[in-house]
Design a protein around this nucleic acid. Sequence first.
DNA 1: ACCAAGATTGGAACGACGTTCCAGGCATGT
DNA 2: ACATGCCTGGAACGTCGTTCCAATCTTGGT
Lengths: 197, 197
Amino acid sequence: MLLDSAGEGGLTFRALSARLRTGAGAIYWHVANKDELLAAATSAVLAGVMDAEAPGGPEEAVRAVALGLFDAIDEHPWIGTQLSRLASQTTTLRVFERLGQQVRALGVLVEAQFDAASALLNYILGVAGQNAANARTQEPGTSRADVLGEESAVWSSLDPGEFPFLRGVAAQLRDHDDREQFLAGVNLILAGISRHT
Amino acid sequence: MLLDSAGEGGLTFRALSARLRTGAGAIYWHVANKDELLAAATSAVLAGVMDAEAPGGPEEAVRAVALGLFDAIDEHPWIGTQLSRLASQTTTLRVFERLGQQVRALGVLVEAQFDAASALLNYILGVAGQNAANARTQEPGTSRADVLGEESAVWSSLDPGEFPFLRGVAAQLRDHDDREQFLAGVNLILAGISRHT
DNA sequence: ACCAAGATTGGAACGACGTTCCAGGCATGT
DNA sequence: ACATGCCTGGAACGTCGTTCCAATCTTGGT
């Protein structure tokens, strides 16, 4: 997809016109504007993710949905921006619904289900946004390890008086796995949710 | 501030020039580009939030930081977009540090501190992004209650077979308080964190 | 008091973007 | 054959971030 090869900023109607060997008007006949185009692209990419059936119990299903989204966003970082853009987009609603159903299956008290599902969704959207920001910042050539190395060096050189925590975890930052840390956060929320059952 | 009166999209260098009764070149002499300008504005707004001393224990301190950020973002929604944009911005680092220190004070196991602070930060950034998206979508005249009412009506009219959860919580959506729900999410994560002490 | 040298300003100009507009091409039904 | 819709290509518009540069202020040495 053009979105992946050129980055989210690279999807211009001119680039699309060139790639499709057509004019701008032809594109506008099919979609109302760029937002709708991106929404459609997001929906298309995430369609496969949301269909997958969860194997284990509801906790495992939450993890599966979350990781499915994470992997999709990792592969297509522009989705992260898009998901945070329009709250009531159909795609986001579908994710919310999916999370809510699993929260209900967990046996969470009815009055706490909405908050629990919201917390999960907002956490996922937060990570999605951060991943998109990371992808936007780094130039195409660098690997994730390089970026982490540089950032870790920055943290190590912070003022010890003002930033003791970041200095302390700078080494962990260098070696950590984004996906594992994301999952750890999901588990943290799931652990908190289990108190409301 | 111009950013609040005109919305984040309203901050153009031309509007700034007009408001400051100067030219574009004058602005570019002081800041390198628009990103730097927004980063400076974000830092200025959040400076007061991060200084406030926390009254109670570390849990209370986490809630204070989170709510302080929430209120600041609620008042200046464009900050939400900005915070998610550049991960390693100084402002975000300060928030991360602050959260990390409280996580450490909570007595979380050393190897779990990084994940715990990350989870809190990502959740906060997720809500920030959603708030910014909400502010972007709604036209200036409508109140939050109106928006929730409309969205609640949308959820109520979803297909019962596909969206049972959202239909079920549509009424809660109409009456819920964004700030309380945000706090509930923070508490959920804090509850999960307390298992790693 | 003067004046070179830098710091700062205002505004014109540039290229790229999303979007609009419209003259045409290509079907299909009669 | 021809008229009526759908669909295409590309020119053109307005706005944005940004660059550029002549003009104007400040300032410090003589």
